[in-house]
Structure formats: structure tokens, C-alpha cells
């Protein structure tokens, strides 16, 4: 290993990665430049705009303010990790259906922030959604359609949960 470098192992979107990195390497640069996952964007680069938001061990974090070495042993989910072979993630569908974007630059970070919110709070009020989005800046939408997109996703996920519960009850 090169002098001064540190080995990090982490799981990104379900795949295990090992890399040798400079300690100063930011998580967002590891994701974009070394793993080629450019869905995570760099906006302000000062931990304000939230475009670089990913999930680290299930929590929304700003990957421009996390060192790659801090994520060692962790589990990262980026926007590329949301969709499954069955289709888009409900939050992605919500942004599509409710037009929760215009230029799309902030969208990956906003989506990951919303995914983090709905994990903790599957049925948020409008106020809770707006509070949860405090750490993401969008200069296009005025947030109205983003809020509607998250509300849509929450209702779709709740309906899917109910269908699963009914199906489970019927098989019993």
C-alpha cells in the first residue's frame, strides 16, 4: 500500500468495495471518481445544499462532509441503488408523477433525503416533509412539487404495505 494511504472496505448499493485512499479523500469523491457512481452530485461543496446526500448505514448524510475513511465498514446507498429489477423506487416514481424537479441537479440528493425520511417516518405530515427537506436546496421548483412527490411516494408505500399485509393474512 502506498505510504499514507488507508484501506477502506464498504458496501455500496449492496456490492462490496475495497479501495486504498488518501485520508483526505471525501466520500463523494470515492463514489463519483473511483466507483463511477456519478448520480451523487456535488453542489455547494460546503455541506449546505444537500445535492451529495447519500444514505450511510441507513441515515441521510452529506457525502461532501464525510471522509471515505469514516465510511470504512459502512453501508452506503446512492441514488443508483434505489431502483430494483421490478422498477423504480416509489420515491423516484413520486418525482416522476408529480414532476418534483426541473433541472434535476439537486434531485439525487433530495430523493435520498426523502428515502431517509420515509424510512424513519412512513406517514409524514406536510410540515414534517418540509422540515426533513431543510438540508436540501432546490433553485427550480419552489419545493411545492417536491413535497407532493414525497407525499405521493408515502401513500404508494403505505398502500403497498397494506396489500402485503392483506396478502399475508389471506395466506394464513
Amino acid at each position: 500500500m502506498e505510504a499514507g494511504k488507508v484501506r477502506v472496505s464498504l458496501e455500496v448499493n449492496g456490492k462490496a468495495y475495497t479501495a486504498e485512499v488518501e485520508p483526505r479523500l471525501l466520500l463523494v469523491h470515492l463514489l463519483r471518481d473511483q466507483l463511477g457512481l456519478t448520480g451523487t452530485h456535488i453542489g455547494c461543496d460546503t455541506s449546505q445544499c444537500g445535492a451529495c446526500t447519500v444514505l450511510l448505514d441507513g441515515q441521510a448524510v452529506k457525502s461532501c462532509t464525510v471522509l471515505a475513511v469514516q465510511a470504512d465498514g459502512g453501508r452506503v446507498t446512492t441514488v443508483e441503488g434505489l431502483a430494483s429489477p421490478e422498477g423504480l423506487h416509489p420515491v423516484q416514481i413520486g418525482f416522476w408523477e408529480k414532476h418534483g424537479l426541473q433541472c434535476g441537479f439537486c434531485t439525487p440528493g433530495v430523493i435520498m433525503t426523502a428515502v431517509g425520511l420515509l424510512q424513519d417516518n412512513p406517514r409524514p405530515t406536510e410540515e414534517e416533509i418540509r422540515t426533513a427537506l431543510e438540508g436540501v436546496l432546490c433553485r427550480c421548483t419552489g419545493y411545492q412539487n417536491i413535497v407532493r412527490a414525497v407525499q405521493y411516494a408515502a401513500s404508494q408505500m403505505a398502500e403497498a404495505d397494506e396489500r402485503r399485509e392483506v396478502a399475508a393474512a389471506e395466506t394464513e
Binding site: S47, A60, K62, T65, V66, T113, T131, A132, E134, G135
Partner: peptide, 9 residues
């Protein structure tokens, strides 16, 4: 303090 992402770290 900060915002949700900041409070998570």
C-alpha cells in the same frame, strides 16, 4: 442545529 443530514453526523 443545521439540518437533518448535519444532525445525523
Amino acid at each position: 442545529i443545521g439540518d437533518p443530514q448535519v444532525r445525523n453526523r
